[in-house]
Design a binder for these strands. Structure first.
Lengths: 353, 353
DNA sequence: ATGAAAGCGCTAACAG
DNA sequence: CTGTTAGCGCTTTCAT
């Protein structure tokens, strides 16, 4: 059934075209140094026997790999976008990309091991969760670019976006709409959550809203948002805007609010963070903070390339600004008379768990 | 900065341990044929200089690759699960997995090219969208297992689940709850959509509900579900249950229903298909039809392996049964008195677009 | 138990 | 323009 016979090699092509291997090699690679007729003969021969160069042998022979290893988390939607952008950015420089997935059943060190075995020249790690010491150890062996996480070891390059800027954008947006009573549902423990919390506080202060600063404990799941919704609903007066830790959290909140008969954005505005896929669903259409995957990927590959060719690098860390993605969950706050008597109606629905 | 010096080779290890390359090779691979002291010496030497075998060279030398190429769509959540399971299933057989992503900017033929260049021994294609002729062409060159799509070419192996069974499970479930007025929002054009539509009709007929068969045009997006919701809401009497083409469609429907003040599952039950991540979100908790990723992956790898070792295969196609995942969007239908006057209340909310 | 030698499929100097 | 000669890093006979 399936053709189990030996795959044709360059040798076969050369023989068929009646030339030497090296000439065939040159012709196949499209380099100069072959006469047009010969090239055509070789190409035709290759085509006829279905020849396909062996990437591994090719790289082995070349000594250098032109191979970038990329770890990503198969669960994380944003990584999908980054991968798309990475492929695109790798093309012009003719880098090959070796993907290694982190899954629930395959931890990051396994993913890294595999890439190392493939002799990747450099590594691009999307939101790695390994301890910094492990990453630093890698960084000492080959160029490593960490994407989307803050690490301080000098042997590691970093491309990330500024969380405090993101939070400021969100707060600015809400304030410009007329909101003052803006609460933050945080992301619990973790560096990122802390950075966003800090960003929220700073941004509020900047608008003279220090007194309105309120942080409600949340988390990184929709459920945590749903739980936080109860707290939000219980507040008197109810805040006019909620800034959630991330999109998942915001969606849980959103859903719980709507089920309680609160209208978004008429009664309360909601802002997420990440511009994840869920936030774009037409029936969610969440205002959120987005990161430019294309740019991040391109910068990360650039940096890897810079390291590989041995050029100097001035700033180890590249910090990008995220941007506001204005969708349909934010609007002007309700007029005061309305706020006194929030538009709560009992809607028959399954309980929010 | 980052160590640019040559990676240590087996030669280096051998030299350091004072043995020949071949012996070092045997020791490193843990094969028998080395004295214990020598093995330890080699292993220590390798460790000291940070040696790591070069997978490519290793495979090149071995002649065979033990490498399975896997294409997947970075957008598709179910593929993430399959990949996890594939890694797990590949481990015992010591297969290496080469991942090649299909992204908005990188089409499937590119993904396939890359894998072919890596001399994968066999291909596992997750939900491929290439024309069958292209797949068949591949199948003639090396073992190809198509996962989750129906193809008829004899050179291709298939592992998929039966859509008609899935639809039957959904209908059976609803009927057993007491529903009779069950509509189907379909997935538009496409093989899969047709298969599910057919499955729905057959299942309804089986319950003597031929007269209640109603198919509402839908699609594969949340938006299409939201649009279909309007049709559902306009029906008199309103159906007591809706069976959507997939989870995305079901979620759009769900959201639109809730915004219209219809309670799910009290007024109407909703069933999705795919058991995708979105259906599991705690605040969605959609009853749906699930496929066993672990089993599919394992069968796919098994099949690839069987082909590779040249064993006979009796059935080209492996068709699994999906299963019902009962969550919180299905319940007994409302009592008739209630149905006459469906519980519609105008909820102030942003319009469903 | 150990080592020498011959490739795997390819590219990269070199000579003609 | 073309062919010859060496390897890349590893595994694999096959002697010793």
């Amino acid at each position: 059934m399936a053709g189990q016979r030996r795959r044709p090699t360059l040798e076969d092509v050369a023989a068929r075209a009646g030339v030497s291997r090296s000439l065939a090699s040159i012709a196949i690679r499209g380099e100069s140094g072959v006469s047009e007729p010969t090239r055509e003969r070789v190409l035709r021969a290759a085509d006829e026997i279905g020849y396909r160069p062996d990437t591994r042998a090719r790289l082995l022979a070349q000594g250098r790999a032109k191979l970038l290893g990329v770890t990503f988390n198969v669960q994380h939607a944003f990584h999908a976008e980054l991968i798309d952008a990475i492929y695109a950015a790798a093309e012009p420089a003719a880098y090959d990309i070796a993907l290694s997935a982190v899954t629930p059943g395959r931890d990051e060190s396994r993913a890294l091991e595999a890439l190392l075995g493939y002799r990747c020249e450099a590594l691009v790690l999307l939101g790695p969760d390994s301890p910094e010491s492990r990453l630093a150890e890698l960084g000492r062996r080959l160029p490593v670019v960490v994407v989307g996480r803050e690490v301080s070891d000098p042997s590691l390059d970093v491309v990330r976006t500024a969380d405090d800027v993101g939070m400021r954008l969100a707060v600015d947006h809400l304030v410009s709409l007329g909101h003052r009573d803006i609460v933050h549902i945080d992301g619990g423990r973790g560096h990122k959550a802390a950075a966003r919390r800090r960003g929220y506080r700073t941004a509020m202060r900047r608008h003279g809203l220090t007194d309105q600063v309120r942080v409600i404990p949340g988390g990184q799941t929709g459920e945590s948002g749903a739980v936080a919704a109860r707290v939000v609903l219980a507040e008197r007066p109810m805040p006019t805007a909620v800034l959630a830790y991330d999109d998942d959290c915001a969606c849980g909140l959103l859903d719980a609010l709507i089920r309680s008969g609160v209208s978004v954005p008429d009664d309360v505005s909601v802002v997420g963070y990440d511009d994840s896929r869920i936030s774009r669903l037409p029936y969610v259409s969440l205002t959120t903070i987005g990161q430019d995957a294309r740019q991040m990927a391109s910068l990360a590959l650039n940096r890897a390339h810079t390291r590989l060719v041995g050029d100097e690098v001035t700033e180890r860390e590249i910090v990008l600004s995220p941007h506001l993605v204005e969708r349909d969950t934010t609007a002007r706050p309700p007029v005061d008379s309305d706020r006194q008597q929030p538009h709560l109606q009992a809607v028959r629905s399954r309980a929010v768990r």
